[in-house]
Amino acid sequence: MFKKIIIQADERGLLFNKGRYMKPLAPGIHWVSKLRGDTVTVMNVMKPFIVPGKELNLFLQDEELLRELEVVDVQDYEYVLHYEDDKFAQLLTAGKYAFWNALRRHRFIRADIRVPEIGSEVDLSILPKLGGCVQMQEVASGERGMLHYNNVMQKELPPGKYYFWRGPVQAVIKTVDLRQQQLDLTGQEMMTEDKITLRLNFVCQYRVVEPLRALEIKSFEEQIYIQLQLVLREYVGTLKLDELLRTKQEIAAYALSRLNEKSAEFGIKFLSAGVKDIILPGEIRDILNTVLLAEKKAQANLITRREETASTRSLLNTAKLMDENQTLFRLKELEFLEKICEKIGTISLSGGSNLLERLNALIGPKGDAS
């Protein structure tokens, strides 16, 4: 008893006898004997070569069938990108795969995931289709990246986006900011040489110039902060309070000089520094205010005495000139008379002398005005 099997152009058949693979069947009409236990598995050549319940290696011994298949063996340390007619189809992980080459052209790109960085042969546009097999890390503008494989430094990376395979080797980019940064030291209590405790607010700017060196230092910013503290304590401790207040502008220059002596150790360059505030204890501030007030009062008294002396000297000179020159004396009298007239509403004159004599009598030693 025979059974008719029709295989279409986009199909292939696999002939089995009592479950044992015999041969492939090309498109066309085939007759198989049911009495002998023949069966046919019809497969679509547009789909991967997968026979349910059968191992792939069972069919790869057939040279005739092998000519119609593309076989790819993916190792444990590999990913394989599968393209059909130059279009990405799927990502293949460890295992063996077979595809019909009848109606489609297959292409494979192998990636060794022991080297995590994704090479230029992989089009970045397909990465979203790869799911959890890919990770992205970014180095921002103004930063420098240090690429590490399993905590081992590999190379330095400029700003950009970088893609890595997820696999046995862990890829991590550690970034270092190369932009100018500011370190604020706020409210630090320090003691001067004369045992006065004050609080200092200080600021400095710096820039990282050796990113790798900066990464090698644990708690990088904290160590810079402590170094700045030590430098300032060293300087403040050598000066009395009056000297410190008088030369506070020199603190920044000293601190900057000392910090740059240590800059090579940190891989940075200190750019500028400055004192923001010097905060004194309340009782010291009151004492200084009292001293300042006394100094200002003494200065004011000195200026007053100086002006009084100058005014007296000027009057003495004027008196000498008036004593030597009667005309000047009379002009001065008329000047005073003018000032008196500005404050008196009316002046009454009596007697037979002329007007000038009567006015002269007003400004004389016994003159009367009413």
Rank of each mutant, 00 (worst) to 15 (best):
R67V: 13
N57D: 13
P52I: 07
R36D: 14
N44H: 15
V51N: 03
Y79M: 04
L60M: 05
V72I: 11
V40P: 06
V71R: 12
T41L: 07
R36S: 15
D62K: 13
G37Q: 07
L66W: 02
N57E: 10
Q75K: 13
V51A: 00
D73Y: 12
L66I: 06
R36A: 13
L69H: 03
N57M: 14
E70M: 06
Y79R: 13
Y79Q: 05
Q61K: 11
V40S: 11
T39G: 01
G53I: 02
M43F: 08
L58V: 06
V74M: 01
L81F: 04
K47D: 14
L66D: 09
F59N: 05
Y83V: 06
D76N: 04
I50D: 12
E68Q: 06
M43E: 13
K47Q: 09
N44Y: 03
V45N: 06
G37A: 04
T39Q: 15
E64P: 00
Q75E: 02
G37Y: 07
N44S: 15
D62T: 02
Y77C: 00
Q61F: 02
F59E: 05
Q61V: 10
L66S: 03
K54P: 00
K54H: 08
Y77F: 07
Y83N: 09
V71T: 04
N44T: 09
V72H: 03
L58M: 07
Q61M: 11
L58A: 12
T39K: 12
V74L: 06
V40I: 15
T39F: 05
E68S: 15
V45Y: 10
D38I: 04
